[in-house]
Design a protein around this nucleic acid. Sequence first.
DNA 1: ATTATTCCTACTACAATAGTAGCGTATTAT
DNA 2: ATAATACGCTACTATTGTAGTAGGAATAAT
Lengths: 144, 144
Amino acid sequence: MKLSTRTRYAVRAIIELAQNGNNKPLQLKIIAQRQDISIKYLEQLMAVLRTAGFVRSVRGSKGGYILAKAPDQIKLNEVVHQLEGPVTTVECVEDEDCCMRSADCAARSLWMQVEQAIEKVLQSVTLQDLVDRANDGKRLDYQI
Amino acid sequence: MKLSTRTRYAVRAIIELAQNGNNKPLQLKIIAQRQDISIKYLEQLMAVLRTAGFVRSVRGSKGGYILAKAPDQIKLNEVVHQLEGPVTTVECVEDEDCCMRSADCAARSLWMQVEQAIEKVLQSVTLQDLVDRANDGKRLDYQI
DNA sequence: ATTATTCCTACTACAATAGTAGCGTATTAT
DNA sequence: ATAATACGCTACTATTGTAGTAGGAATAAT
């Protein structure tokens, strides 16, 4: 049960955008440098975020990406779902004869419980929250 | 973020053992039939469960597997960890220069929060709970 | 025009998972 | 004893999904 790099990279990238503010577009080149991600790979991930309506692209020279919504209006569960798909795929959800095996159904109920717990966390966190956390982290660094 | 079949199959198998009680060993052949899993594949998963101390094997004719502990003494997080390994691998936990990238750290805190939520659920559920759920399911079937 | 940037599609390489195969070893029923 | 049953172990293979690469087209600023 690992998180794909797709998701991890994309979340890091969108956090960068949130930190950049909405005035100037931020270029993939910059994000790629800061986060040590291949530009070409990042392009694909940004395409997902753009299609999903989280970010807006500015083409051409001096172009780049900016958030399409306010950071406190973007919940992480929305972002993760776009990249990761369903979180803990339980095959038998749509399989009709699944309930003939009670053990399987007990297992299924467990996975659904897990899935709901994940969902609850991701729903409760917005992009703004993550930006705040990052700032808190910096503040701690200065105190030392 | 999918669960491997290793984990799903093994959980289903150990639920079968819990339902079978501790009197007679249950044979892999039976589990494989009921759960539609290859015997050979199941053997490998049972080896993990046996090494981890969850189940005990009874060799020879009329042999099979039985639980090594009471079902209410087996927490699902223990089982899952043996098969799945760490739940949501966050690479940068041991990477020293991770904190140079604040965005990354904000992301990391999110994944840790998710991981803890998963862990909390799995810790709270025992094998006995799953057996009870399966029985409740059956009871519902009869009511209809 | 030139440069810088996003956009789009296809391709490739690698790793992990899932599953198979075969033989070996232990135990029990008879 | 012997046969049957069932686990034990190791290696192999095939499939799938992920990760990453490549090249070029469209677009905008200068």
